[in-house]
């Protein structure tokens, strides 16, 4: 019943073909089959955001998508985003602001923040907090993370329009 299925997908720009069990979710596949351990498993029910990866250009929960569903898809992880330098400014700011303590949430935070940056506009601080509110961090209290993202958004797109209210 649990026969493996062959899938071919692009991971961080590289085409890979593997057999996977249908029940294996994408983050287990990336970590276990491809050794991409930068994506983490935190809750496996879609709440914590530690497994956030990019699927066909959008941030998704790696634990709520099956590996077989990624057949033919384009997957990017923290390793890929690092190599492409797409978020090097975000990463630099995370270091400078100490926006990571234990670091377990950090790749997922960065993948979510990358989507915010990719949207191409500055945002008020409260909106950044809302946008990032699906990623759990137990260590930092979030402020340094928000600082880092806000700084990058401003550096890239200028100051946000004044907050309403």
């Amino acid at each position: 019943m649990d026969d493996t299925i062959e899938i071919t997908l692009t991971v961080n720009g590289e085409t890979v073909t593997r057999r996977t069990s249908p029940r294996q979710h994408l983050v287990d596949f990336l970590r276990g089959e491809l050794g991409l351990t930068g994506s983490h498993v935190g809750c496996e029910h879609g709440v914590c955001g530690a497994c956030t990866i990019r699927l066909d250009g959008r941030a998704v929960r790696g634990c709520l998508t099956l590996a077989v569903q990624a057949d033919g898809a384009r997957v990017e992880t923290i390793e890929g985003l690092t190599e492409s330098s797409e978020i090097s400014d975000l990463q630099r700011l995370f270091v400078e602001r100490n926006a990571a303590q234990c670091g377990y949430c950090t790749p997922g935070m960065l993948l979510t923040a990358a989507e915010l940056v990719a949207a191409g506009q500055a945002m008020p601080r409260a909106a950044i907090r809302d946008f990032m509110s699906g990623n759990y961090c137990r260590c930092t209290g979030y402020q340094a993370i928000i600082d880092a993202i806000e700084h990058v958004l401003e550096a890239r797109f200028g100051a946000p329009a004044k907050e309403e209210g």
Partner: peptide
């Protein structure tokens, strides 16, 4: 933190 932000953390 440079390791942690690049996915090079090792848990």
């Amino acid at each position: 933190v440079r390791r942690l932000v690049t996915g090079r953390g090792r848990y």
